[in-house]
Simulated assay, not measured.
Amino acid sequence: MSGTQDKIETSVEYAEADVLPRCHEIHSDPDARARCLEERSAALRQEPIARKSPAEWAYERLILYIQNFEETLDNEHEIAMGFTGAEAGVMRIEGMGYFDPDIITFYGSDPTGTKTQQIQHVSQLNVILRALPKQVEEAAPTRIGFRLAQALEQDDAQGD
C-alpha cells in the first residue's frame, strides 16, 4: 500500500453514499480547479434527496453553480443568465426561486434594464451563465450566489 488506508464502509454508509449528491468534472487545462466544490453541497445533504421536489433539488444545485461561477469573476463583471433555445436573450440575475413541485423562477433585468422574470419547468431547464460588465452606477458587483446560499442555510437551520 502507498501509505493510505482503505476504509471499510458499513452497509448503511454505503447506502447513504449512494444517494448523496455527487459532482464530477474534467477541464482541458490540467491546472484548472474543479468548480464542483462538493464540500459546499453540505446544505444539500440536510434533507434526503428523495424528500425534495424536482424544483427544490434543481434550485439548490443551481445555487452551487451560480456561486462557483461568481468566484471566477473580477470586480468589473456580474453574473447573468442566458436561456438556451429561446429568444429571451440574457438576464442579469437578481433573484431565483422555485414553486413545488416542478417550477424554477429567475428574476432580473435584461441589458437595457428592463425588469425580467423567467419561469421554467425543471424538465426544460437549460441555461448559460455569463459574465456581463457590472452596471456603472454600482460601486461593487452584485453577488446573488452568496445571498442564495445564505438563505438556503437559514432555511436548513429553521428546519432543524
Rank of each mutant, 00 (worst) to 15 (best):
M1N: 11
D6Y: 09
D6E: 10
K7P: 01
E9T: 02
T10D: 12
T10V: 04
V12R: 14
L20N: 05
L20T: 03
C23M: 12
C23Y: 04
H24R: 07
E25I: 02
I26E: 11
I26P: 03
P30V: 10
D31W: 09
R33F: 11
R33P: 00
C36E: 04
E38W: 01
E39R: 09
E39Q: 14
A43S: 11
R45I: 02
Q46R: 14
E47I: 15
P54K: 14
L64D: 10
Y65H: 14
Y65T: 03
Y65I: 02
N68E: 12
E71T: 13
D74N: 15
N75D: 15
N75E: 15
E76C: 09
M81A: 13
G82W: 03
G82M: 10
T84C: 12
M91H: 00
M91T: 03
R92G: 03
E94V: 02
M96S: 01
G97R: 04
F99I: 15
T105K: 07
T105C: 10
F106M: 09
D110F: 09
T112G: 03
K115N: 04
S123D: 10
N126I: 06
L129C: 07
L132N: 07
P133G: 04
G145H: 08
F146K: 12
Q150P: 01
A151M: 09
E153D: 10
E153Q: 13
Q154M: 07
Q154R: 15
G159P: 00
